[in-house]
């Protein structure tokens, strides 16, 4: 069979469709909601956020220095944060990893009220009412959680609530491997 126009027009539609169908099949295995973070393996941005209440010290990037830590972005108006909060409280209680919070785009006082009502799992919390630090970290919504290594680089970003399953399947092995880095 020679590669004539007739043969081309005869077989091209079926072959073309086969390629497209295969692509669509692969597409089904893909989660379109997973957005890569631009900050992976980059140093976390420098910041110094004010505290939620006048008594405490706020949160600065230096607070994260030299340890594997979690940076959790939350807000009082966010439903997903309510879902993950018990897990965060449990993590704090277990002392599994130092947990720091960024209160993102909340009205003054709301974040503090929320933490008082639902328990505070964070070692330190910074207030980001304008959401500007959020933008620097490529935050698209709340909750989001960043894993930061000893050298201060962001190694992983989780968008959406941390459920016990997510914690066990993703975070625990990741934290273990980060801690084993020298």
């Amino acid at each position: 069979m020679s590669l004539s126009t007739a043969n081309l027009t005869r077989f091209a539609p079926l072959l073309g469709f086969a390629a497209i169908a295969a692509g669509l099949g692969f597409a089904l295995t893909n989660d379109p909601r997973k957005m890569p973070s631009m900050l992976i393996d980059r140093p976390a941005p420098k910041f110094a956020l004010p505290p939620l209440d006048a008594g405490s010290s706020g949160l600065a990037s230096e607070d994260l220095n030299g340890k594997v830590a979690l940076l959790n972005v939350f807000a009082s108006w966010c439903g997903g944060c309510r879902v993950e909060h018990p897990t965060l409280v449990q993590i704090a209680k277990d002392g599994a990893v130092p947990l720091y919070g960024i209160n993102w785009k909340d009205k003054p006082g709301d974040g503090l009220k929320w933490l008082r009502a639902h328990a505070n799992p964070y070692l330190k919390v910074g207030d980001d009412p304008s959401g500007r630090l959020g933008i620097d970290m490529g935050v698209t919504g709340v909750p989001e959680t960043f894993v930061i290594d000893r050298t201060g680089r962001i190694r992983y970003r989780h968008a959406g609530p941390i459920t016990p399953d997510v914690w066990q399947e993703t975070f625990e092995p990741l934290l273990a491997s980060l801690r084993s880095e020298r």
Binding site: A75, W77, C78, G79, G80, C81, G141, V142, P143, A159, G160
Partner: peptide, 8 residues
């Protein structure tokens, strides 16, 4: 779903 993930 947006509401779930915290857009107002």
């Amino acid at each position: 779903a947006l509401l779930m993930l915290g857009a107002s």
